[in-house]
Amino acid sequence: MASPNTKVEFDKTKVVATKRCPDCAEIVQYQAKVCKHCGYRFEPAIEGSAEEHRPSTDSA
């Protein structure tokens, strides 16, 4: 589930996912690692998040 600071804008030609910088409150692209307005560095994505979780196929 997306965080409350995440927004998806729809355009006729593309979908742009955005997030709000917690430091300066400006909107930046969702995949941004550094805010282009103030230089805030976002935390790296956590490996093994719910989106990447796959059930184990081991049958022990």
Rank of each mutant, 00 (worst) to 15 (best):
M1C: 08
S3R: 07
P4E: 09
P4F: 07
N5G: 12
N5E: 09
N5V: 01
T6N: 14
T6W: 08
T6V: 13
K7I: 15
K7D: 11
V8A: 02
V8E: 02
F10K: 14
F10N: 14
D11R: 00
K12H: 10
K12T: 06
T13H: 10
K14R: 14
V15D: 03
V15F: 11
A17P: 00
A17R: 09
K19H: 04
R20M: 05
C21E: 01
C21H: 01
C21K: 02
C24P: 05
A25P: 02
E26L: 00
E26D: 07
E26A: 05
E26S: 10
I27S: 14
I27A: 13
V28K: 04
Q29P: 15
Q29N: 15
Q29G: 15
Q29K: 15
Q29Y: 12
Y30N: 11
Y30Q: 13
Y30A: 10
Q31N: 13
Q31E: 13
Q31M: 11
Q31W: 15
A32I: 05
A32M: 07
A32Q: 09
A32P: 08
K33I: 08
K33W: 14
V34Q: 14
V34P: 01
C35G: 02
K36M: 06
H37Q: 05
C38T: 02
C38P: 02
G39A: 07
G39P: 01
Y40G: 02
R41M: 08
F42G: 00
F42L: 00
F42E: 01
F42T: 00
A45D: 08
A45N: 02
I46L: 15
I46M: 08
I46G: 06
E47L: 09
E47G: 08
G48W: 05
G48Q: 01
S49I: 00
S49K: 08
S49W: 01
A50D: 03
A50Y: 09
E51Y: 14
E52L: 12
E52D: 14
E52N: 13
E52Y: 07
E52F: 04
R54T: 07
R54F: 08
P55N: 15
S56K: 15
S56P: 04
S56Y: 04
S56A: 10
D58R: 13
D58G: 11
S59V: 04
S59C: 10
A60Y: 09
A60W: 12
